[in-house]
Amino acid sequence: MLFEFLRDHRERIAAKWFDSAVKTYPSDSAGFLAKQKDQFANPVGVTLRTATQRLVGELCGDMNSSVILEAVDDLARIRAVQDYSPSQALALLFDIKRIVRDIASDILSDSKAVDELFEFDSRVDLVILHAFDRFEAKREKMFDIRTREAQRRVQKLTERVVGTDSQDDSV
């Protein structure tokens, strides 16, 4: 019954979640992130919005893993290059628990709903675990990019001096 309730209020939940995610940016930017809806002029805001919407859909739906992975990947990609520690970067995902408790407070007196809440929480946990993986992968990706960029910068020089064979072909 909780899931049914959540599905009915999916849009409101997603909107609240997006709001709380945007609040992790300085307040003067938050307005811009929330209002500018052009995906090319405002990739951060639009990504946050789409990712939270899709995650809500799956959390109270059938937990399609490819959708979830894609959404947390998009989120992680953006948060990993901004001024956040890993915990700060992903804290916004925990907010969904609070948001759901607020919205569903009236029906949470029902024990069946509480059981479903436990189920919901473990779904969120799963999403967060994935997000940690993705976040870490993005940071590693950056190290990889650094190395490859350094190689490319002088690639032909190195090939000429050291010989082509010793270079891995990063093309």
Partner: peptide
């Protein structure tokens, strides 16, 4: 370790009122 909500609010709440009073961090 602060709680997630706290954390989000503590570090990234509204900046000081005037941008002139917000020193730069070299990270």
């Amino acid at each position: 370790m602060p709680k997630p909500e706290q954390l989000a609010q503590i570090s990234y709440g509204p900046p000081p009122k005037n941008w002139m009073d917000n020193p730069v961090k070299f990270r």
